[in-house]
């Protein structure tokens, strides 16, 4: 019997040899990911003298400036997620239907920007949104506006730039789910007399829901934490939680508040991960 089957044969009798394979990863992530984050959480609940305290949390939640930043971070993340879904859902269907050359083109348009990196793309968008940038020149040239619009340093520009950067993360999970579904289910529903809207809401949408949930969770968790994109597109004028964290550690040296804001951001991200995995588990249970 091979070593691979040995473990399954004697469950619980002795230490599973596969556990040994996980030891390097467990050590690395335990030391470099879990432990540092636990320390950060502990630090956020201490005051400057080292006693347990929720003083910085009280300070955070009673500061209108901080609350505005919190609200803005969440609103921008929700807007970005909705826009990626709106654009990504039809694109995923087109990608699943496309064959040959067309499919290659759409796949390249997804994967190439994914491999280029955030700084390059955010930098390019900051050029596009300049007052003397392409958008304003086109709109002025077409006579749609007669004054250049202020686009850079606005939340709209941030959402457009962030959507551009996170869009592949929405398209690809939905595409993966569409490829697994049976296209005949729709035809079957149609044959049985279901209208197109019924087909969509009762057949297509439920089947693709796991892809939507996975994509939305991924996009939201990245959008709520993004730093480079707002830094290049809206600058210091509009503060998000990420920018406040960077500012507390790099410039203000207020590590207490920085740790507290980090914990709040971490809680939002963890909440999304947990909720989405619970939903995904329910969905797969329902289909099984």
């Amino acid at each position: 019997m091979s070593q691979f089957n040995g473990a399954a044969a004697a469950p619980g009798r002795r230490t599973d040899p596969f556990l040994l394979l996980a030891v390097p990863a467990l050590c690395l992530l335990g030391m470099l990911f879990v432990l540092p984050i636990v320390f950060l959480l502990v630090k956020s609940f201490r005051d400057t003298t080292g006693n347990l305290s929720i003083a910085t949390y009280v300070a955070f939640f009673s500061d209108p400036f901080m609350l505005t930043a919190l609200r803005r971070t969440i609103v921008v993340a929700i807007e970005t997620t909705l826009l990626t879904l709106l654009l990504g859902y039809p694109t995923a269907f087109a990608l699943a239907r496309a064959r040959g050359f067309t499919q290659t083109i759409i796949l390249i348009a997804m994967i190439l920007p994914l491999s280029v990196g955030v700084i390059v793309k955010a930098f390019a968008w900051s050029i596009v949104f300049r007052t003397d940038g392409v958008i304003n020149k086109t709109l002025l040239g077409l006579g749609i506006i007669d004054q250049p619009l202020r686009l850079l340093f606005t939340e709209t520009a941030l959402v457009i730039g962030a959507t551009n950067i996170f869009l592949p993360f929405m398209v690809l999970p939905i595409y993966a789910v569409i490829r697994q579904t049976d296209p005949n289910l729709r035809s079957a529903a149609a044959t049985l007399g279901a209208g197109p809207l019924f087909c969509f809401f009762r057949v297509t949408l439920p089947l693709t829901l796991p892809g939507i949930v996975a994509g939305a969770a991924f996009v939201f968790s990245m959008a709520v934490a993004m730093y480079v994109i707002p830094n290049l597109i809206i600058g210091e004028r509009t503060q998000t939680l990420s920018m406040l964290i960077a500012r507390s550690f790099l410039y203000l040296r207020n590590e207490q508040m920085g740790s507290t804001i980090s914990t709040i951001l971490l809680a939002i991200a963890a909440f999304i991960v947990i909720v989405s995995s619970v939903i995904l588990k329910r969905l797969s249970g329902r289909q099984a």
Partner: peptide
């Protein structure tokens, strides 16, 4: 899926 800045700070 965790915020990069938070991992960095930690």
């Amino acid at each position: 899926m965790m915020p990069g800045l938070v991992i960095g700070v930690a």
